Amino acid sequence: MEKDDSINVLGGTLAVCGTDPVTGFFRDGHCNTCAADQGSHTVCAVMTAEFLALSKYLGNDLSTPRPEYRFAGLKPGDPWCLCASRFLQAHEEGCAPKVNLAATHRRALEVVPLDILQLHTA
């Protein structure tokens, strides 16, 4: 799997999203992506209780620990590389988390317009 160029939505070098917990499709702390990343885990978002509840309700429980995957579960304030479509859905539901634009991969723009990402800038 070859990574796409590490460029953010602002045209600069992709910044680190989060290392505690380690996030990203490649679990390298960045919202890097590639052709195999069908979910486009490209939006660097800061978790909120409201977003985590929505995600759990929609079937993607990010808050429950899963020790078998070395996953402690996310809590409000944790940065995480979200699927672009889930971020857009949360925006449409009125509970999108804050976004770190410098750490959001430019491929997110294939799903989420820049002006929507900017509305939720951290």
Score class of each variant (00 low, 15 high):
Thr33Phe: 13
Pro76Met: 00
Ser6Asp: 12
Cys34His: 15
Ile116Leu: 03
Ala90Phe: 06
Met1Arg: 02
Pro97Glu: 11
Met47Ile: 00
Arg27Lys: 14
Gly18Val: 03
Cys95Phe: 14
Gly94Cys: 03
Pro79Lys: 12
Phe26Ser: 10
Asn60Pro: 00
Ala53Arg: 14
Val43Lys: 05
Ala15Ser: 13
Ser63Tyr: 00
Thr121Ile: 03
Met47Glu: 01
Met47Phe: 00
Ala122Lys: 13
Ala49His: 02
Met1Phe: 04
Tyr69Ala: 11
Asp4Lys: 09
Thr19Tyr: 03
Ala15His: 08
His41Trp: 08
Glu110Gly: 04
Cys44Trp: 05
Lys56Phe: 00
Phe71Gln: 08
Ala103Thr: 12
Leu10Met: 09
Ser63His: 02
Gln38Pro: 01
Ala72Pro: 14
Cys44Arg: 05
Lys98Gly: 07
Gln118Glu: 10
Ser40Asp: 09
Thr19Ala: 00
Gly29Lys: 12
Val99His: 05
Glu92Cys: 10
Val16His: 03
Thr64His: 10
Ala84Val: 10
Gly59Ala: 11
Leu101Thr: 15
Pro21Lys: 08
Ser63Phe: 00
Tyr69Ile: 04
Ala49Phe: 01
Asp5Phe: 08
Lys56Cys: 01
His41Thr: 10
Val112Ala: 10
Gln118Pro: 02
Gln38Glu: 05
Asn60Phe: 09
Asn8Ser: 08
Phe25Met: 02
Ser55Thr: 06
Ser63Lys: 07
Leu52Trp: 09
Glu110Asp: 15
Gly29Pro: 11
Cys83Ser: 07
Ser40Ala: 05
Trp80Lys: 02
His105Gly: 13
Gly59Lys: 11
Leu117His: 04
Pro79His: 11
Pro67Ala: 09
Asn100Glu: 12
Val43Phe: 09
Asp4Ile: 02
Asp61Arg: 13
Thr42Gly: 00
Arg107Val: 07
Pro113His: 02
His91Gln: 09
Leu117Asp: 05
Gly12Arg: 12
Gly77Leu: 04
Gln89Pro: 02
Ala90Met: 05
Lys75Tyr: 00
Asp37Met: 10
Ala49Trp: 00
His105Ala: 12
Glu93Thr: 01
Glu92Pro: 11
Cys31Trp: 07
Ser55Asp: 09
Arg106Gln: 15
Leu54Phe: 13
Lys56His: 05
Ala96Val: 03
Leu82Ser: 11
His91Phe: 14
Val9Tyr: 07
Tyr69Phe: 14
Asp78Ser: 08
Ala102Phe: 02
Val9Gln: 03
Leu74Glu: 06
Thr23Gln: 11
Leu82Ile: 06
Tyr69His: 11
His91Leu: 09
Ala84Asp: 12
Asn60Val: 10
Ala103Ile: 06
Asn32Cys: 07
Thr104Asp: 09
Ala53Asn: 10
Val111Leu: 03
Ser55Gln: 05
Phe71Trp: 15
Gly94Arg: 07
Phe51Lys: 01
Gly73Ser: 06
Asn60Trp: 12
Thr121Asp: 11
Phe26Gln: 07
Asn32Lys: 12
Leu109Gln: 11
His41Phe: 08
Gly73Ala: 08
Gly73His: 05
Ala45Asn: 08
Asp4Leu: 09
Pro65Thr: 01
